[in-house]
């Protein structure tokens, strides 16, 4: 039985309420989803809570999973939503930034690769960003979402997503320069 067949079987078992199957899927994806949550929440302890709540929600809604995307991609979206909810509730930083960005900032051409850095260095620099900038950098460079998807995830317009990304990149560049 190949990986896809095993996944399908596990997901079917989860749909029947099989706790062992849920635990198996948790073990498979916990590390990856923990890192997704940690990059947004920026707190080791809370990232575990957020990640686990995302799994619980995923298993509650597993009946809605149709297999259009991979289970990992579906789960990741739930984890990101859960992380953003945590930041909105406890990070309380969204209010520091305007919901609508003015047009004055020139939008960069889309670079889809991280700025040629070791992952450790990029992640460390990201920690110094505010939650919005940290989130958009993570979604774009690491998770691989495009601006349309980011706009939907962060509940902002397409233009705002691009403008925010430009600002986030400038801020990241400044942090990296200061660290040299």
């Amino acid at each position: 039985m190949n990986h896809e067949d095993r996944q399908r079987k596990l997901i079917l078992a989860c749909k029947r309420g099989d706790i062992r199957a849920m635990e198996t899927l948790y073990r498979q994806y916990a590390r990856s989803m923990f890192n997704v949550a940690y990059r947004i929440v920026n707190d080791f302890h809370f990232a575990e809570d957020v990640m686990q709540e995302a799994f619980l929600k995923a298993f509650e809604r597993i009946g809605q999973f149709r297999g259009d995307a991979s289970f990992g991609a579906w789960l990741k979206r739930i984890t990101i939503n859960e992380s953003l909810n945590w930041v909105k509730k406890y990070g309380n930083r969204y209010s520091d930034f305007p919901a609508n960005f003015s047009e004055e900032v020139e939008v960069d051409s889309a670079e889809t690769e991280p700025p040629g850095l070791e992952p450790e260095k990029l992640l460390k620099a990201m920690q110094a960003l505010n939650p919005q900038y940290r989130t958009i950098i993570s979604l774009f460079y690491i998770e691989g979402y495009d601006y349309r998807e980011i706009a939907e995830i962060m509940d902002i317009s397409y233009q705002n997503a691009r403008t925010m990304m430009t600002r986030a990149k400038k801020k990241l560049k400044k942090i990296l320069e200061n660290e040299k």
Binding site: A30, R31, N35, E48, Q52, L56, P119, E120, I142, G144
Partner: peptide, 26 residues
């Protein structure tokens, strides 16, 4: 969405996370 780069998954969840999740799940 492009495939995620696992080079950025540098951290492991805190020790004991599986047991804690198992309890929450139950």
């Amino acid at each position: 969405m492009k495939n995620k780069d696992s080079r950025y998954d540098l951290f492991s969840p805190p020790e004991g996370h599986e047991a804690r999740f198992s309890m929450k799940l139950h």
